[in-house]
Write a protein that binds this DNA or RNA. Structure first.
Length: 301
DNA sequence: CGGCTTTGACCAGCGC
DNA sequence: GCGCTGGTCAAAGCCG
């Protein structure tokens, strides 16, 4: 997808670099009045052509984005459908672990601006465990870049957490720590923290539930954030499985590879990354910058 | 002494 | 039904 987009922008550069460059190279001051009229007409035609090309390319870009979004949605729909749904075309009776992936979500930012919140649709169940899971309507993820040498699975997000368990899971050699919110005794929020399989410097915190109390003072819980002296650069996004917020605690810059390490690249996130990469690539391209400058100057002229 | 962490045991979901 | 796995409990120990 991205190479195709780059090709489109390359063609944009080529198309646009012909027009305005010609305009600047004509040297109008040395022309006689009849020649000037001809050149003026020629410039107007060129400008019209450039504007039309810009419009066409914008349409192509928007079409490409729409196609990409459509394909992305189809892809995630396919990935999120259970094997039984893929084969039999109907949902199997909901069970606790299976149904977790079928929940749908919405999102908002709270608490330091780095927490994503998602809501799940209620589903019927016949097990006590399932009912307990239904009582936790929200799930969110927070990826935190932290020092790999630090063994404690502590993600300081402004709340008070009490660790109540630790387990080594099958798919990740790093232990997973279980936390409860200890700020309010009745707060149902739980948090799981585990290092990313791909990048040990990334802590993946999974939040379940919503705090039924106000957040503690920022200074109480965000000590690590201020300790490393880095800014929080959240990148909220919606995923069909869960939203992921990436917070880099060791670098001011948001790392795309860290997101990959989280294994939670979402459709909107991918789009954002693509747009950022496209914009960055275009910004770095001297041809594009010169062309853009020429187009702008041409429009002003 | 109270709060927290550690850690082995236990329970329930799930696949075979 | 059995074994694996994830999640939780609770006793013991640590720390300020």
């Amino acid at each position: 997808m991205e190479p195709a987009a780059c090709l489109e922008f390359s063609s944009l550069n080529l198309e646009l670099s012909v027009g305005p460059a010609d305009l600047t190279e004509k040297g109008l001051a040395s022309k006689t009045p009849p020649d000037r009229q001809q050149e003026s007409m020629f410039m107007k035609e060129k400008l019209n052509k450039i504007m039309e090309d810009n419009r066409k390319l914008n349409e192509m870009l928007s079409d490409m984005s729409m196609n990409y979004s459509s394909l992305q949605n189809k892809f995630f729909d396919f990935m999120n459908s259970s094997p039984s749904e893929k084969t039999a075309g109907m949902a199997s009776p909901t069970r606790k672990r299976k149904s977790d992936s079928l929940e749908s979500y919405s999102q908002e930012n709270v608490n330091n601006g780095v927490k994503a919140h998602v809501e799940s649709l209620p589903s019927e169940s016949d097990s006590y465990k399932r009912l307990r899971m239904d009582s936790k309507p929200t799930v969110s993820k927070l990826c935190v870049r932290a020092d790999p040498s630090e063994t404690s699975l502590v993600v300081k997000d402004g709340y008070h957490w009490r660790k109540y368990g630790q387990k080594v899971t099958r798919d990740n050699p790093s232990p997973r720590a279980y936390f409860r919110c200890s700020f309010a005794p009745s707060c149902p929020v739980k948090k799981k923290v585990q290092r990313s399989v791909n990048d040990l410097s990334i802590l993946v915190a999974t939040y379940e539930g919503e705090h039924n109390h106000q957040a503690p003072l920022q200074s109480e819980g965000s000590g690590r954030l201020s300790h490393v002296g880095s800014s929080i650069t959240p990148s909220p996004s919606i995923n069909s499985s869960s939203p992921t917020i990436m917070v880099d605690l060791t670098n001011d810059k948001l790392h795309a590879d860290s997101k990959k390490a989280c294994g939670e690249m979402t459709s909107t996130e991918i789009q954002k990354v693509m747009i950022e990469q496209m914009a960055a690539a275009m910004a770095k391209d001297p041809t594009f910058r010169a062309t853009l400058a020429n187009v702008i100057s041409g429009r002003i002229f």
